[in-house]
């Protein structure tokens, strides 16, 4: 399992560019994934998440830039890098004539794992995937079963880095929960690099996130820090009496980007100049003879951060 030392990043991408015809799928992506993190690689469809993962796993080559896994360039070392990673593509293709156990044994064999070590890992992973005792061929599996087997096969070599491409995007709520539970169970044991466009999944399992938009990383930070950063641009205030006049006044202010009524006497302000807002809000409340019950930084969801960064149209 992964070492959780902070030295070499698990994944380090610098200026990664990939062009397909006239489309720049990746446009100078910079990214650093710390070892031991559960890293959410978030972006709308077509942002370049899958292309990044394909380059990291050696399925595609970059036009410019470098991608390193545990300090080794992915284009230089081939099998050496692949021994350290586990990968689940967005639509995993299995041999339909195999059972889950057969596929796990086959996968283990490709990593050179054999004998008792392979027996033990296959048993543990079948259990983790909830597929113990399932004798059915993979061709007859549901999408959820395939995804769970996909995560299991990606873990057969006890990878230092587990890369999952949209592992929950086509699953029903139960299937999603099962796969997310598997990922949660891995936290602290290996580095998980997890691409998705589902914000709630990232909020639930990831500790760090990067947001990719139109082939560029627009932000990267621990989720809490990101929320704090964007939360500081929200102010929640509560006054002693309802005041529509106050709401109208704030709406027109140059430092205010939006006003939302939260209850009869409460307002949530989205601000563009936090310093100006901190001065103006108490002054305007007092000027109207109202008392200030509460004035604090607001909570933002990852969805709000995401929409703010990539635009509401996405």
């Amino acid at each position: 399992m992964a070492e959780t030392t902070t030295g070499t990043p698990a994944i380090e991408i610098v200026g990664l560019t990939k062009v397909y015809g006239k489309t720049r799928a990746l446009d100078g992506v910079d990214l650093e994934v710390p070892q031991g993190s559960v890293f959410g690689f978030l972006g709308p469809n077509g942002a370049g998440k899958t292309t990044t993962l394909r380059i990291l796993t050696g399925l595609a080559t970059p036009d410019q830039g470098t991608a390193r896994i545990l300090g080794r360039d992915v284009t230089d070392v081939d099998n050496d890098v692949r021994s350290d990673i586990g990968f689940l593509p967005d639509v995993p293709g299995f041999y339909p004539w195999m059972t889950a156990e057969e596929f796990l044994r086959f996968s283990g064999g490709l990593f050179g794992i054999a004998g008792e070590a392979l027996d033990a890992r296959v048993k543990a992973l079948l259990e983790l995937a909830g597929l113990t005792g399932v004798k059915q061929k993979v061709g007859g599996y549901s999408r959820g079963m395939k995804q769970r087997l996909g995560v299991a096969q990606a873990l057969i070599n006890s990878p230092k880095i587990l890369m999952l491409d949209e592992p929950t995007s086509a699953l029903d709520p139960i299937g999603r929960k099962e796969v997310l539970d598997m990922i949660t169970a891995l936290a602290g044991r290996t580095t998980v690099f997890f691409s998705t466009h589902i914000l709630s999944d990232v909020e639930r399992v990831c500790d760090t996130v990067a947001i990719l938009h139109k082939g560029t990383v627009v932000t990267q930070a621990p989720i809490n820090e990101l929320k704090e950063r964007y939360g500081s641009q929200k102010l929640v205030l509560e006054v002693t009496a309802q005041s529509n006049e106050l709401a109208s006044l704030f709406s027109a202010a140059s430092w205010c980007a939006g006003v939302e009524h939260t209850n009869g006497r409460g307002l949530t302000l989205t601000v563009s100049d936090i310093e100006a807002a901190r001065v103006a809000v108490p002054a305007e409340v007092a000027a109207r003879g109202l008392g200030l019950i509460r004035l604090e930084a607001g909570e933002v969801s990852l969805e709000e951060v995401f929409v703010d960064l990539v635009g509401g149209g996405q």
């Binding site: 399925l59 299995f94 996968s107 490709l110 990593f111």
Partner: peptide, 8 residues
């Protein structure tokens, strides 16, 4: 894709 992301 699954096979060739392993050491072969």
């Amino acid at each position: 894709m699954l096979v060739l992301t392993k050491p072969i």
